[in-house]
Simulated scan of single mutants.
Amino acid sequence: MYYLLLAMLLTLTGCASKQPSFSLVIDPLLPSVINYSGEIDPDNVAAFEQGIANSPTQITSLVINSGGGDVLAGIRLGELVYQHKLKVTVDKVCASSCANYVVTASDEVTIKQDALLGWHGGVLQPLLYGSEDFHKYKKSMVEYIMAWAEAERVFFDMVKVNQAVTVLGMMPGLKGKRNTPLYSYDQQTLKALGLHITFEDKQATVSKTGEEIVQIFSLSPEVLDTLLLQHAQRLQQL
């Protein structure tokens, strides 16, 4: 499984670089809750899938702490969340592939106080907001990107969340206002895009070391409609 090596896609795995060691735990006192901490990669997601399958008690909730990782593994993780109708709680951070494919897959997401939630792109990023000459890359990498494009499209159709959630913060009009690695949206915008998220407190934007990590875009319904129309028009040009 290829990780994203292209410069235009490096940001999608960058959040995973300093993650804690992977752990997967089902607490005996809370046997319906599975805890996933660490990078999203094929082996870790396979362990997660096996953990659900082997659990003597039905797993109904996922507590996650992840800065992201491999995008196709992230989509598989999101598929499992959706198929098992898992409630999701973000413990410390859910960013990149975790934001793209885990919080979007659940109908009941809780973001704990001080936990960070943030997006910074998706497969539509290079196609819509920065042209690339794919011919200069290896065939295997191009095939990976094409597989990702199809998988992400199918995923968002399945979970009934607007795929634009991954890239709105990169669109003209918002991109120029960005001053943080990650972005999120106000509660009203998240709901309008199809997400079901409750924050225990106001959305966290600052890391424990005091660094501004997430920028929250507060969008009026009119601005959001305009951005989504522009997004749809760009898609039609592909």
Rank of each mutant, 00 (worst) to 15 (best):
L128M: 14
T110E: 04
S55I: 02
K85V: 06
L168C: 10
T110I: 13
G51N: 02
Q163S: 13
G78K: 04
G173D: 14
G74K: 02
G67S: 04
D91R: 14
Y36A: 02
F155T: 00
S37V: 07
A105M: 08
K85R: 14
L10G: 06
A53N: 09
G51S: 01
P56T: 04
T104K: 03
V142G: 09
S55L: 07
D186I: 04
L174S: 11
I216H: 11
K112S: 14
M1E: 11
I34Y: 06
L6N: 09
N65S: 15
K136F: 12
K112H: 07
E152D: 15
Y36Q: 00
V102G: 09
D27M: 03
Y185T: 00
A151L: 08
F156N: 01
M1A: 11
L128H: 06
D41Q: 09
V206N: 09
G38H: 07
A73K: 00
L62F: 07
K202H: 09
L30K: 12
I26H: 01
N162D: 15
A47Q: 14
T57M: 08
Q113N: 11
S23N: 09
D201Y: 03
L238P: 08
S106G: 08
Q163N: 13
I52T: 03
E222K: 11
L182R: 00
L10K: 13
W148L: 14
R153N: 10
L12Y: 07
I34D: 03
V165S: 10
L195G: 05
Y137D: 05
A16D: 03
P20H: 01
V123Q: 09
Q83T: 10
V81L: 05
N162R: 03
E152C: 12
E132D: 10
A73S: 13
L190I: 01
A192E: 08
L6I: 02
M171N: 03
N44W: 05
V63C: 05
V142P: 07
K87Q: 14
T180S: 10
P221N: 07
V161W: 05
S23A: 08
V223E: 15
P126Q: 04
D27H: 08
N54S: 15
S140W: 10
V142H: 13
E212I: 00
S55C: 08
C94F: 08
L10H: 10
I145K: 09
K92H: 12
K85E: 15
S140R: 07
A95E: 03
E108N: 14
V88S: 13
M8V: 15
Q50W: 01
N35M: 01
F155P: 02
P56C: 03
Y183C: 02
G194D: 04
L12H: 06
L30Y: 13
V81P: 05
S61C: 05
E39R: 11
V109C: 03
A105H: 10
A7S: 14
S37E: 06
E132T: 12
G68P: 02
S140K: 10
V159F: 09
C98F: 02
A7Q: 12
G69F: 12
L9C: 07
M8H: 15
M146Q: 14
F156H: 06
A53G: 02
S220Y: 08
E143L: 10
N179Y: 14
